[in-house]
Amino acid sequence: MGKYVVRRLLMMIPTFLGATLIIFYLSFALPGDPTAGRCGERPCPASYVEWFRSHYGLDKPFLVQYGIYMGRLLTGDLGTNYYGNTVIHELAIRYPTTLKLAVIAIVAEILIGIGAGILAGIRRGRFIDSLVTISTLVVIAIPVFVLGSLAQMVFGIKLKWFPVTAGDGTWGQLLLPGLVLGSLYVAYVARLTRTNLVENLRADYVRTAYAKGMQPARAIGLHALRNSLLPSITYIGASFGALLGGAIVTERIFNINGVGSLIYRSISQRDGTTLVGAVVVIVVIYMVMTLLVDLLYGLLDPRLRHE
């Protein structure tokens, strides 16, 4: 177990290096000039551009820039962007909002996704099963920017059930965007749960459960479900890692100041420091989440325990 964790942690190093190298190169290769628009309507004077480029090290070759960046990163310094703010500060003020969004989406995945999947699975072939199958297909098929705008229009503007935007990032404001963000994952979780439950209901050990004299509630609710939920739990865990990376589209639609918006802004303003810093943090979070999910899986399924 301990050995396994150490091995996994060591495997994170090349992943981390690869991910940072790629994102650093992409931001380096991005066309455009970070000094554009810094001097009002006039182009910046050549002396300023030269100072700017040497101050931020932009005049150095790519690999040197990468080396300097990684050197700072090892001391925990994510850098300071062109506006004089540390990237850590930029992330710190936005992460609570992104975290709230992710939590709302995860709760929806667990309650709605698993709930609908179980209902559809035990009522296979009935109305509720068809309803779940069709509605999840619709959700999966509709792009999130359509779904988000539609939800904003219907529930925010027409019905006035929810606030139209979520600039302050309170729980109430984030509920609708969180549900929109989670809807795709909810649909996948519902389908995954249904499929696995249907399969497990036919399993030999469920027949054994009945042969042992169990009522259906226990045979299904304990024996079949325990096994059926394993893939769903893994999927939900992995989706939490992905959600913590911010949601560019949803955050844009509902005007949310989260990590997704930060990344979007850093790209459009050619703010490479912020972009690379944010992605580095997201990569680390995602890798840690994946490791936690794998460890959880071993805990839930004794056959996969890492002895």
């Binding site: 030999d204 004299g213 325990r226 004794p302």
Partner: peptide
Amino acid sequence: PKARAAMRGPKISMIFQDALSALNPVF
């Protein structure tokens, strides 16, 4: 069905061909 289920175990019980799949893998 309930009375029937209560008989399975104390009155009549069964073992199966493939014990690996007949036992629940996670308990």
